[in-house]
Simulated assay, not measured.
Amino acid sequence: MDFTYDDEQDALRDAVRGLIGKAYGDYEKRRQTTKEDPGFDEKVWTQLAEMGLLGLPFSEEDGGVGAGPVEIGIVCQELGRVIAPEPYLSSVVLAGGLVSAVGTPEQRQEILGALSAGESVLAFAHAEPGARWSDSASAVTASQDGDSWTVSGTKDPVLHGARADVLVVSAALPDGGTGLFVVQGADAQAEGFSTYDGGRAARVTFDVTAATPLGTAGADVTASIAIVHDITRIMAANQSLGAMETLLAQTTDYLKSRKQFGVTLNTFQALTFRAADMYTSQELTHSLVDWATMVVAAGKPEEVADAAARVGLQVSRGGRHIGQEAIQLHGGIGMTAEYSVGMYTAHLTALDHLLGDAGRHLKVLDATLEEHGVIDPLDRS
């Protein structure tokens, strides 16, 4: 496989890095932005739209650019480098991805067109209290009265649910299965709160709330939700990789500049070895992230699911290792809110738990072992 970017992809990376770096290259700007609602800079969101980044995954017919997974991964990596708080992953990749996969042509043009133009923010209301990373819904139910539909129940947490103009809501259908519905943000009751990595989420309640079926009314779209979840896991891995690269760079720079006993910390062999182990974790993660992203580009759902579990497991382990070592090697300053290392580690943890942690991915991979026969290591036939 060729993991190198072409000229257009390099140009995309440089353009995104220039925009996002200007906005959040100074960690203090990011910290101040996340202190107040909506938790991100609306001006930066508009700038992302002007660059065509919000419409990157969507077809030109739907108001987008029609780029591929590699380009989307580049954007996610650059956002991860500065842990930009804009809801690109949750709004564009996840919620927008579902509209693109399930919606009618009219719905795609209307909803994705507004998202691509930066005129609206989407949120996927799917997670339910007590549930863990399921592709189906149960606590929120849909009811039909003639041609009209309503949804009732609670979703929590919903990333950027309080700010969302449009909610894509999963709900249990009357005849079984899970359907997707479009609900205007103003029609739902949202209680917003801050997350531990400086982001925003909400507890969203629906009480016989008017809803429009996304795509074919009454259709079970559990399989589509699963596919988009897997794609989002891989794009979240891209975002995590960007954060890991920044953590490693910050840590090695600190070891080269911080002095102890009259010499810089990189003089001590044990600390250098620990930094080298961080680099190993980052490079292994980088290889798997690039591979998984190319699997998405190949477009085979069963291979995407396997790739998402494999890269998710590595990102979970690698992110925890790099984050913990970065804090330890920075010493006391790594624990302060004013310094970025701790927040980067918190963001890696949040991404790890967004759609499944290491335990979840191990279970998925473990289930595939039954597909293989028993091998006798001493059988020389």
Rank of each mutant, 00 (worst) to 15 (best):
Y5K: 07
G21W: 01
K22P: 02
A23I: 00
D26R: 13
E28Q: 15
K35D: 02
K35L: 08
W45C: 05
E50N: 04
D62K: 01
L89I: 11
V93G: 00
Q107T: 08
E110A: 09
G113T: 05
A114R: 09
A117C: 01
E128T: 08
P129D: 09
V140A: 03
Q144R: 11
D145M: 10
R163A: 14
A171H: 00
G177K: 04
V183H: 03
D197E: 14
G199R: 07
D207L: 14
A210T: 15
A210N: 11
A210Q: 09
A211L: 06
T222Q: 10
A223C: 07
I225K: 07
I225L: 12
R233V: 12
N238K: 06
L248K: 10
T251F: 01
L255W: 11
S257E: 01
L265F: 09
N266F: 04
T267A: 14
F268W: 05
Q269H: 15
T272Q: 03
T272E: 01
F273I: 11
A276S: 13
Y279C: 13
S281P: 01
Q282V: 15
A292L: 10
A297L: 10
V311K: 12
L313M: 04
S316W: 00
I322C: 07
I322L: 09
G323D: 05
G323S: 12
H330T: 15
V341Q: 11
T345G: 06
A346H: 06
R360C: 09
H361A: 05
L362Q: 09
H372S: 01
V374A: 09
D376V: 05
D376H: 04
